[in-house]
Write a protein that binds this DNA or RNA. Structure first.
Lengths: 158, 158
DNA sequence: TTTATACCCGACGCTTTTAGTAGGATTTAA
DNA sequence: TTAAATCCTACTAAAAGCGTCGGGTATAAA
C-alpha cells in the first residue's frame, strides 16, 4: 500500500477544479500555479483521470479541464484509484495467496485495514471537501497570493 | 505513507513469537521457516524491534527472541512504527507546512485519514490477534506443514 | 491565415526505498 | 571445542516516485 504525492496531487487538483471550475474549464497552468504542482506532472495525472472519465478536456485557447460529473458524485477513493495508487494493505492484492497459495498469518488484519481505509475515502465527496471550513480558508489564502503575484507581474511590466 | 512487506513481516514475526514463544525463546530460523521470510531480512527487522524494546534476545545455542512485554500490551501500531513505516498520509509529516510553510488544500483530509489508520492499528493487540479464529487456523496449517517437512527430512536421512 | 494557447504523448533521469544477499564477528550452551 | 544463535555492516538489483524535456496536435482569437 502506498499513498504519496501522486494521489495527494490528484485529489488536490480535482478539488481545485471543484472550487474554481464553475465558470468554464480550468487550465492545468492555473492549477499548477495555485497548488504548486509541476505542470508536466499534472498532465500525466490528468491523462489518467481522463481515461477514467473523471474529467473531460477542452483543447485550444481558453480550454482546460472540467469535472465530468457533479461534485456530489465524485469521491476521493476513485480519484486515488484512477492514478494507480492502491489503497490495499495486503501483500497479495486481496487474493489471499500470500503464503504459497494460501493466506498468511496476518492476511485478514491487512484486509480489514484496507476495508477501513477504503470506507473512509469512499465517503468523502468533492462536494463535502468544498464545504469544509479549512478548505475554504486555504482557498482564500491561495486566491490572495495569486492576486499579489499578478500585481507584481503587472508592476514589472510597467 | 507506505505499508509494505517490511511492516507486514514485522507484525507477522511478532505474532509468531506471541503464538509459539510461551516455552522459551524462538530462533529467527524457526520464524523464517514458518512464515516464509528471509532470515537475514528478519535479523534486520529484529534489530529495530530490539532497539524499540519490543523484544529481547538470548544469544547462543537454544537462544532466540522473546517478547519483552505481555501480549495484551503490544499493539500493531507500535510494531509498524518500530520498523520505520510511517502510517502518515500527509506530505509534511503532520507539520502543516505542505505548501511553502502553510497547509495545503487537502492537508486536513490526509491528517484525518492518518488518525483513522492509527486509531485502527493502535486498538489491535497481539493478544487479540492470537485469539482470532482465522489466525488459529493458519497457525494450525503452518504447524502441520512443519511436521511434514520434518518427516520428509527424517525420511531422507534414512 | 497566422499565432498563441492549451491539451496530448513518450522518453528519459535522478533519487529513494524495498527486499533482500553476503560475509563475517561475537556470545554461549552442550 | 564446536555449533547454534544473535549481531553488524556493506552491498545490490529492481522498482517506484517525482519529476523534466521535447516535441506533437487541436482550436479560438487576432
Amino acid at each position: 500500500m502506498r499513498l504519496t504525492t501522486k494521489g495527494r496531487y490528484a485529489v488536490t487538483a480535482m478539488l481545485d477544479l471543484a472550487l474554481y471550475g464553475d465558470r468554464g474549464p480550468i487550465s492545468l497552468a492555473d492549477v499548477s500555479g495555485r497548488q504548486d504542482i509541476s505542470l508536466s506532472y499534472l498532465e500525466q495525472l490528468f491523462a489518467k483521470l481522463r481515461r477514467k472519465d473523471l474529467v473531460c478536456s477542452i483543447r485550444g485557447p481558453g480550454g482546460g479541464y472540467r469535472l465530468s460529473r457533479p461534485v456530489e458524485t465524485i469521491f476521493v477513493a476513485e480519484i486515488i484509484d484512477a492514478v494507480d495508487e492502491r489503497v490495499d494493505a495486503t501483500g497479495c492484492a486481496g487474493k489471499s495467496d500470500c503464503q504459497d497459495g494460501q493466506t498468511c498469518l496476518t492476511h485478514n488484519l491487512w484486509s480489514d485495514l484496507s476495508d477501513q481505509i477504503h470506507h473512509f475515502l469512499s465517503d468523502i465527496s468533492l462536494a463535502s471537501l468544498v464545504e469544509r471550513r479549512d478548505v475554504q480558508n486555504v482557498s482564500a489564502r491561495q486566491l490572495q497570493r495569486a492576486r499579489n503575484t499578478q500585481s507584481i507581474i503587472l508592476t514589472a511590466v510597467d
